[in-house]
């Protein structure tokens, strides 16, 4: 690739990925920035201050992180055994089971959510964060099973047998051998599930009944406010959340990897 194409490619990448974020950031710290001005008249942190001084928003931030993390953990707990079984065993009616697991993606979520709302009310999980966590499983679990299953597909039975013959029981083989080898799949699964959970509005609104306020629930009133600096700050905060989660997840996975090392 010669220089011209390199420069062109780099410019395109900057235009598509970096420029919008940069613009958003400048917008969040500018004061009165109107077309056709190239630069804002003045800078101020007013937008950010407005966001951080809203106690409802701070609470929503924690709720969002809490629900997202719970959804990720619950997905791991349910999807790991399911994916393992689907990958390394031949349960009867395997194709049917796989289709049923994928169904929530094909059926309109709203239709299912309405029905599940009644069920949630009956078991008393409506209007609570537990109900919201459960309903977030709907659009996430199918993907989690898919990703982890393809991860397990790459691990032949020979690996487990190698573990057994080196003297590890089934449990140790799972935690000491299979999970460390599954880290790449666990990583992509965790990120995807968190981002999906983060972007749920309708499901959270229906099941949370307005009592469980996550960031998306607050986002709409904020968005309709006329102050663009405040909206931009909120958007930046929203976009930073997955990155914060990524750092946390990486730390957790790195710790696990460290633990599973042998010398």
């Amino acid at each position: 690739m010669n220089k011209f194409w390199k420069v062109l490619l780099a410019s395109l990448l900057i235009l598509v990925f970096v420029a919008p974020v940069l613009f958003l950031f400048i917008r969040s710290v500018s004061f009165g920035w109107r077309f056709p001005d190239v630069l804002p008249d003045a800078f101020s942190l007013r937008g950010w201050q407005a966001v951080w001084s809203d106690p409802q928003l701070i609470r929503a931030l924690w709720t969002t992180i809490g629900i997202g993390t719970a959804v990720v953990v619950l997905n791991y707990l349910l999807a790991l055994p399911a994916a393992y079984a689907l990958s390394h065993h031949e349960p009867r009616g395997k194709a049917v089971i796989e289709t049923v697991i994928m169904l929530p993606i094909f059926v309109p979520v709203l239709a299912v959510a309405m029905g599940l709302h009644l069920f949630m009310i009956r078991i008393g999980a409506a209007d609570s964060w537990i109900g919201v966590v459960l309903i977030h499983m709907l659009p996430t679990l199918p993907y989690a099973v898919r990703i982890l299953k393809s991860g397990f597909d790459r691990l032949q039975t020979d690996w487990m047998w190698q573990g057994r013959t080196l003297g590890m029981g089934p449990v140790r083989t799972f935690f000491g051998l299979m999970l460390p080898m599954m880290l790449p799949s666990l990583r992509s699964c965790g990120i995807l599930v968190f981002v999906i959970s983060l972007s749920q509005y309708v499901l959270t609104a229906i099941i949370g009944g307005g009592r469980v306020t996550t960031l998306p629930i607050l986002y709409f009133p904020f968005f309709s406010s006329a102050d663009e600096a405040v909206t931009a700050s909120f958007t930046m905060l929203f976009a930073l959340l997955p990155i914060v989660f990524l750092v946390l997840l990486e730390t957790a996975l790195y710790t696990y990897h460290k633990w599973s090392r042998t010398v």
Partner: peptide
Amino acid sequence: FPQLTVLENIAYGLKYG
């Protein structure tokens, strides 16, 4: 084990096995 070095691979059974 691809995520472990040669030495760690050799030590594997001595930790878990």
